[in-house]
Amino acid sequence: MTTTTVSQAPLAKALAGRQRYIPAIGTLSLLIAMILVGSVRYEGFFSGQIILNLFIDNAFLLVVAVGMTFVILTGGIDLSVGAVVALSAMLCAWLVEKHGWPPLVVIPLVLLIGLLSGLGMGAIIHYFDIQPFIVTLAGMFLARGLCYTISLNSISISDPVFTDLAQMQIGLPGGLFVSSSAIFAVLIVAIAFVVLHYTRLGRNVYAVGGNKQSAMLMGLPVARTTMSVYAISGFCSAFGGVLFTLYMLSGYSLHAVGLELDAIAAVVIGGTLLTGGSGFVLGTVLGVLVLGVIQTIITFQGTLSSWWTRIVVGLLLLVFIALQRVIGARQR
């Protein structure tokens, strides 16, 4: 349950209180080390644009992982995110291209659908006490299945609103640039940070993840919090889906297969405890960047194949889960 250490030396106490930062610091060191190794080994690796490209290429993953962070902080999990991303992209492409709906109607609609689907899953999880894993699994089947029923083939997008947004480049000093997606993603991160650390909802998320029973007895709105995190995750997945649409300029049922695993991996590598209650959204950003750098290094290496990404990510997962376990065991 909790520590029973009665008296500690001041330093030990200060360290004990800050243990939750260890995984995030570990991730940051890892990220810096990987960038350094990459810079030494590969010419042209160390440039501002490479860093920015990490954000550009992983904008959708970043947004999805931010939503996942909320869910995992409460001790839950959301397996439906990849499928919701695909469904959102599919809906965008289908409604805009096949039915001629204006993008400015379609995008809010897609976001709303994501939000509501998350809300529904959250309500089932809370009120009927079914494991989040199985409910979101059903959500994943449903969203993926709906993709297929909409279209079996890829629908490419030529609507100017989408193509303009996709090609938009925002120049930065020093000849650098970012895409609109990256800006949106950073914006979402900023909002998530404020929500998690400066609003009651955010603190309730941590409280529920720390001890749900206590949170109830402390009079915190556990039901509302649980439903909110899944709604947020649903919204973020839909938003990630829109960014994904911008990235791919198409809707396809097989888009974003396995994205949920990447998102979970990013959150865990970012130092969030899978059992809930501890973690930071900025850690998740670091986690996404680590995944991005792994991919970049593998691209630069040339001789390494893409599947090494999965293996390395799996190993990192192992390391971080073991780290969490060790810290958790010490706190017990």
């Binding site: 400066y198 720390g210 209650g277």
Partner: peptide, 26 residues
């Protein structure tokens, strides 16, 4: 059984649910 959240700070455990806020921000 202490019904508080061990992962939150002492101050938060005392104040959570009735935090002082400005424009919704704690």
């Amino acid at each position: 059984e202490v019904n508080l959240c061990p992962n939150l700070s002492v101050a938060e455990n005392i104040c959570i649910g009735r935090e002082h806020r400005t424009a919704g921000l704690i």
